[in-house]
């Protein structure tokens, strides 16, 4: 944040804003303090030593990574189309893209379950057909990724759309006059300029995936060592009354989330 130019008479204005906004910052800080106060380092280490939690941490890391990568893969093209083109049915498409954002996540899981187990290919369900081809989604790790992706991608689309809307179309047009095809202009100008937006979209999608729980519970289940991710570990610990375990895992999630956020920033660099 830059230096604030506070004239004496403006002070009450900034104080009022600080009180209103600061209340929320205080709440967030209190939540973290409460978690830390409820557990101890020894407790966290104990929790991390459990093979089930290790498996859960591992699955969390790679499922969120995959879900965020797939989200970016659809977020970039869809965001670009929505930002830069006009076509018949665009309003409908926009509404469809908003559904995962406004829909309760639980319903996403339920809907996936129905798609995979009630849509028929020939006389078997989609899931059975996939099983016959060596793939398993329902109650499997791939289902975790799919459930996370189904919600996270909508957020990536939104972020990328905003990114492209803020980028002047003129800059691509000049690239076209300089000899680029649409593809070349996109690759050499648009994408490099969208790098910050892509980092933001990836981070948002990753964070959504980390916090995803409802759809996982329904579509992928919470089988220890198989489809358990950290959010479901918290739930499993709570369901057997181990509050300390749940809190320890929560803190691990906070550390992982902050760590990944910093890593993405570092990898993405600060230029542009």
């Amino acid at each position: 944040m830059g230096e604030m130019n506070t004239h004496r008479s403006e002070r009450p204005f900034y104080i009022a804003l600080s009180v209103l906004g600061g209340g929320y910052a205080l709440l967030v800080a209190l939540m973290i303090v409460a978690n830390v106060a409820y557990t101890s380092p020894a407790h966290i280490i104990d929790t991390l030593r459990q093979p089930a939690i290790q498996a859960s941490l591992w699955l969390t890391l790679w499922s969120c990574l995959l879900a965020a990568a797939f989200s970016l893969l659809v977020g970039v093209p869809m965001g670009y189309l929505l930002a830069r083109t006009k076509f018949r049915g665009k309003a409908l498409l926009e509404a469809i893209m908003d559904i995962p954002v406004v829909l309760p996540p639980l319903i996403v899981g339920l809907s996936l379950l129905i798609i995979f187990n009630h849509f028929r290919i020939g006389n078997v369900s989609l899931e059975q057909w996939l099983n016959a081809h060596g793939l398993q989604f329902t109650f499997a790790a791939a289902g975790v990724v799919l459930a996370q992706f189904s919600v996270a991608a909508a957020f990536a689309v939104r972020t990328m759309r905003g990114t492209f809307e803020q980028m002047p179309a003129r800059i691509e047009e000049v690239a076209l006059t300089l000899g680029c095809t649409r593809w070349q202009a996109f690759r050499r100008v648009t994408l490099p300029l969208a790098r910050r937006g892509m980092m933001a979209a990836f981070t948002v999608a990753w964070a959504r995936s980390l916090g995803e729980f409802g759809p996982l519970l329904i579509f992928a289940g919470t089988t220890r060592g198989r489809t358990e991710v950290l959010s479901s570990s918290v739930f499993l610990e709570l369901s057997v009354g181990r509050l300390e375990g749940a809190v320890a895992i929560s803190l691990i999630m906070i550390v992982v989330a902050v760590g990944v956020l910093l890593l993405v920033r570092k990898v993405g660099g600060t230029r542009l």
Partner: peptide, 20 residues
Amino acid sequence: LPPAERNVGYVPQDLALFPH
């Protein structure tokens, strides 16, 4: 013809230099 094939040099009002 598409812009790339017109062999035209274009300087828009806002210049649109490539910032990256």
